[in-house]
């Protein structure tokens, strides 16, 4: 088991390194850089020599491989460099924006899971065939809604038409309602689809017929037998959907003008603030890898078949 964890950690590090390198190369391939964008403004009145001096100070004039090794070394020692736009260390920017995004993402995930469970279970237990059919088609609808469009529509309806939620200086909780819904809806759809499929599959298993023969009601069978078996494969999808969650957060924060990693990413891309983008990419990759590692390690807890004879988790 410990060997398994070690090899998984090794894979995780490899993924991080690849993410770092690819994003580094892509960012370097872009024409121009943040220093040019920031200081070339004629209003600042800087001459070409002064800009060249600044470039040297930031170390952007040395050969690519030197810069790469330098940056990689810095990342390994926890130094993410300086944000050119904000003139503060990148680490500060990240830390300042992390709590807001973490809150948005976790609330979004919770709501998405709740929505998916509600859709799947209602679609299984609903009393009429037409109602079950209607509920089963919800995920297909949800999955095809673009995040930015949903955000704008929600603002249109709930803020401008119904005036339930104010757009200007909303309260802390009030301000989160629409972004969380915007983020959750498209993520709940694939979860609900997988769950529905797995519930269907688990329902045809022999143990379900046996449970019915014991006199169990449909609700009992769903909770005690089908749900847990159907949730197992869904866990993997949930890990992969974490990536969608991060991507969704960028759009949601931009649409609602919120501060957070998403807003930071959008700003950094606009100003080509490479070191911030680089740090955001590595940070997101790390979060994604960690979440999926956690999912893999959690499996044996939920599925006794995966427990090695008296392994660490047994």
């Amino acid at each position: 088991m410990s060997r398994y964890i070690l090899s998984r950690l090794g894979q995780a590090l490899l993924v991080l390194w690849i993410a770092f390198t690819v994003s580094y190369l892509l960012l370097q391939a872009l024409p121009g850089d943040a220093i040019l964008i920031k200081f070339q403004n004629p209003e600042l009145g800087l001459g070409p020599e002064q800009i060249a001096a600044l470039r040297e100070a930031y170390g952007v004039d040395s050969p690519l491989w030197q810069q790469y090794l330098h940056t990689l070394g810095n990342f390994l020692t926890g130094q993410f460099g300086y944000s050119v736009v904000g003139s503060v260390p990148v680490a500060h920017e990240l830390l300042a924006n992390l709590p807001a995004t973490a809150r948005l993402a976790s609330l979004g995930l919770i709501l998405a899971t709740a929505l998916a469970l509600a859709i799947a279970f209602l679609a299984t237990l609903a009393p009429f065939a037409w109602l079950r059919g209607a509920l089963q088609s919800i995920p297909a609808l949800f999955v095809s809604i673009p995040v930015f469009w949903l955000g704008i529509m929600l603002i249109q309806i709930f803020s401008f038409r119904l005036k339930w939620i104010s757009v200007i200086n909303p309260g802390e909780i009030e301000g989160l309602i629409l972004p969380v819904i915007t983020l959750a809806v498209p993520i709940s759809a694939p979860l609900a689809q997988i769950l529905l499929r797995n519930i269907d599959e688990a329902s045809t298993q022999g143990y379900v017929a046996v449970a019915r023969a014991k006199g169990a009601s449909p609700t009992w069978v769903l909770w005690k037998h089908v749900a847990r078996n159907a949730l197992l494969p869904t866990l993997t999808i949930a890990g992969i959907l974490f990536g969608e969650l991060l991507a969704g957060a960028v759009i949601t924060e931009t649409v609602f003008g919120l501060n957070g990693i998403g807003g930071l990413t959008e700003r950094s891309v606009r100003f080509q603030d490479t070191s911030v983008i680089q740090a955001v990419v590595v940070f997101s990759a790390a979060a994604f890898v960690l979440v999926n590692l956690a999912v893999d390690l959690l499996y044996p807890v939920f599925d006794p078949r995966l427990r090695k004879a008296k392994g660490v988790l047994a």
Binding site: G206, V210, A213, K214, S217, L232
Partner: peptide, 28 residues
Amino acid sequence: SGKRLDVIRGRQISLIPQDPTSSLNPVR
């Protein structure tokens, strides 16, 4: 109805199924 049958299933009529491997819930 299913509800009425639930009372006699297991108590008055019970079942020994065909395939023992798929007939037990793997996670309980």
